[in-house]
Measured scan of single mutants.
Amino acid sequence: MPVRRGHVAPQNTFLDTIIRKFEGQSRKFIIANARVENCAVIYCNDGFCELCGYSRAEVMQRPCTCDFLHGPRTQRRAAAQIAQALLGAEERKVEIAFYRKDGSCFLCLVDVVPVKNEDGAVIMFILNFEVVMEKDMVGSPAHDTNHRGPPTSWLAPGRAKTFRLKLPALLALTARESSVRSGGAGGAGAPGAVVVDVDLTPAAPSSESLALDEVTAMDNHVAGLGPAEERRALVGPGSPPRSAPGQLPSPRAHSLNPDASGSSCSLARTRSRESCASVRRASSADDIEAMRAGVLPPPPRHASTGAMHPLRSGLLNSTSDSDLVRYRTISKIPQITLNFVDLKGDPFLASPTSDREIIAPKIKERTHNVTEKVTQVLSLGADVLPEYKLQAPRIHRWTILHYSPFKAVWDWLILLLVIYTAVFTPYSAAFLLKETEEGPPATECGYACQPLAVVDLIVDIMFIVDILINFRTTYVNANEEVVSHPGRIAVHYFKGWFLIDMVAAIPFDLLI
């Protein structure tokens, strides 16, 4: 008679799926529990143990900040960024110097990925580790590398530091407007667009060049630039800015003055950032001319202004700041037409079709709590990747769950009947059967004279019903998954307890 339990259901295979997918890609990662103190490590794979030199037993239950890997060259700011990422709910990448158990130093890129439950609360953290440099290539500990984003994938490793954006290309926007319009339909740009040429040739750093990471940081200074100062900065030398009595002219307006920039070969870094931020506020060169004239017309309804409409929906549905990093990277690809469009465009503009998908598509409701890094690593669709929660398995109709209350009560009843059979069957065979043979035949009273025979008949009927119930009862397979398919249940029961239950259900007393 089957006594099969499996009270692990309803099970959740999400954690096993993450481990299996990460292991298949030869990654070095740990999984931490966000619900406990210090976000203790609950799993670390073999790749991480080989990377740091510690065994799994030495890593388990330690804080996922990996303070046991810190050393003299470990930056405090990087460690603080990892700790801050564990307090938030967004994906974050941090470069930090770690030390192995043998004392060797290596520069590592740590990717902190939160995993949320159905309520939107962070319950786990996945920390992925990628070695960037070994100890002989690690720089000085005073050099802070965590304020910069990861290198873009479309640049060669040897040319990542030679990417320079020439400031004269930004200063000569109005001069290039006529050349853009003359391109017409034969050019790649839309009317009114501004073409910015980027020099990728390796050259020595000069005062006129600005690194790509500095251009990325310009967006942080746009908020500090007032509207009046932006307007004066875009007017140009024809209309000098008016300053109040006793007030000095704005240095932001002076930063885009061609006369002032041409007199000296070098520009201050602050002026460069502010000038680029001011130019980015204009949607095209037409807006710059309109600002000089004193009238700013409404933005025209053409394809170039609607190019950012799908980007707005993608940004609203993005799951991490990696989408913004990807957008900034692609927006700086050289030799393309940049349409400086305000994100607050007309909502009635139709979304044009684009061959290049900048932001990841909208994630469906079932995966809105899973970050983009987890979705990318697992390579699963929205119909396959579940949320991290207890999910009731989908069972067929008329199927009994093996952990249901009805099955528990039924098993206790069958257990009592088995005990009765084990006690009274030998007793009936030894004593009652002998008395029946010696006594007179009682054929007239039937079952009324033999109450134990009636009980034995009921017990046999219950055993037959138990066999039928076992054909529709779920079970737990070797992978700790609840199986509810009727065919698989029948095959599993035939290979197991079916023969024993059938022999126990045969009414031998009635056959004798």
Rank of each mutant, 00 (worst) to 15 (best):
T13P: 08
L107E: 09
A244K: 14
V131Y: 06
S313W: 01
S250V: 15
A175K: 14
P249I: 11
S255I: 05
K28Q: 07
I42A: 01
P245R: 07
G192M: 03
Q335M: 11
S272N: 07
V94C: 14
M291E: 14
A57S: 12
S304N: 07
V384R: 07
P298C: 13
T353R: 14
V222L: 11
R366H: 07
P297C: 07
L86T: 10
R280G: 10
A228E: 05
R326I: 04
G71T: 01
D67I: 13
D144K: 07
A190P: 07
C66W: 01
A169P: 12
L378K: 04
P72M: 03
A303P: 07
P202C: 01
R326W: 05
V110C: 11
S243Q: 07
T65C: 10
V196D: 02
P141D: 15
S239A: 08
L171W: 13
Q25T: 13
F106G: 01
A303K: 12
F22H: 13
R62W: 07
R27E: 04
P352C: 07
L256H: 13
I82V: 11
P227E: 06
E134D: 12
F68S: 01
C66K: 01
A79Y: 02
P157F: 15
L165H: 14
P347S: 05
V41N: 01
K28M: 13
A156D: 07
S179Y: 05
G103D: 06
D197S: 01
V59Q: 01
P114N: 04
L338V: 09
K344T: 07
T201W: 04
L324I: 14
S272D: 06
R92G: 13
L86M: 10
I330L: 11
G262T: 09
L316W: 14
I359T: 04
E274T: 14
L171D: 13
P241V: 14
R292I: 12
R164V: 07
Q81V: 13
A303M: 07
P205R: 05
G158D: 05
M291V: 14
P299F: 03
P157Y: 01
R159D: 11
K93Y: 07
G192T: 08
D16Q: 14
K332A: 07
V215M: 06
G53P: 01
I123V: 09
G189T: 05
L167A: 15
R5Q: 08
G183P: 09
C52M: 09
T74R: 01
R76F: 12
P151W: 13
A32Y: 01
A203C: 10
T201Y: 03
V196E: 01
S313C: 14
K364P: 04
I336G: 15
P251D: 13
R292P: 11
D321V: 14
L87W: 13
E357C: 14
P227C: 01
V279P: 06
A89G: 14
A360Q: 09
V180H: 15
R76S: 09
C52N: 01
T319R: 05
A80F: 09
P241H: 15
G88H: 08
G236Y: 15
A169F: 06
Q81C: 06
G158W: 13
L324P: 12
V115H: 13
T13L: 10
R56H: 01
A9I: 13
M291A: 15
H254W: 15
A253P: 14
A203G: 07
D197R: 01
S283N: 13
P251C: 14
R328H: 12
A382G: 11
S140M: 15
N38R: 14
A121L: 06
G189S: 05
E365Y: 11
F340T: 14
L338G: 12
P151L: 15
I336H: 14
V113H: 13
V8W: 14
E177D: 08
C49I: 14
I333W: 07
S153W: 07
F340W: 15
R252Q: 08
Q61V: 03
S55Q: 08
S266E: 14
L343C: 14
K332R: 07
C276I: 13
R292V: 07
K362C: 12
S318T: 14
T367Q: 09
G224E: 15
T337I: 05
N33S: 10
A350T: 07
T74M: 01
K116S: 13
D219I: 02
L170G: 15
F98P: 01
F48R: 01
V115E: 06
D144Q: 15
P240T: 14
P297D: 12
T201Q: 09
D259V: 11
P114A: 01
A260W: 12
T375Y: 08
A142G: 11
N369H: 03
P168K: 03
L349I: 10
I358S: 09
Y327P: 14
G158E: 05
P241R: 11
D111E: 01
A9P: 06
A190F: 03
T17K: 12
I19A: 04
G103H: 04
R281H: 11
I18S: 01
A9K: 14
S313H: 12
I330G: 10
T305A: 14
A79G: 05
K362T: 12
L87A: 15
P310K: 14
E289K: 02
S55I: 01
T152H: 06
P297G: 11
C64S: 09
I333Q: 15
H254M: 13
R356T: 10
E91M: 09
S178V: 06
V36N: 11
A78V: 04
L248A: 05
G47Q: 11
G71A: 01
E37C: 05
G120W: 04
E130G: 11
N12W: 10
A223N: 13
E372R: 10
D46Y: 05
P151A: 13
Q247G: 12
S207N: 06
G314A: 12
P10A: 10
A293Y: 04
V374R: 01
K344F: 06
I363R: 14
A185E: 12
P249W: 09
S351H: 15
A204F: 15
K362I: 09
A85M: 03
A9Y: 15
A188W: 01
I330M: 14
A350D: 09
R20Y: 04
Y54K: 01
L51A: 03
L200P: 15
S250P: 15
S283H: 08
P361M: 12
L385H: 09
A89M: 14
C39Q: 13
G345E: 06
I19C: 04
F106C: 01
P258L: 12
Q75W: 01
T65M: 06
V41P: 01
R77F: 09
M133V: 13
M308Q: 11
T305Q: 11
I96V: 11
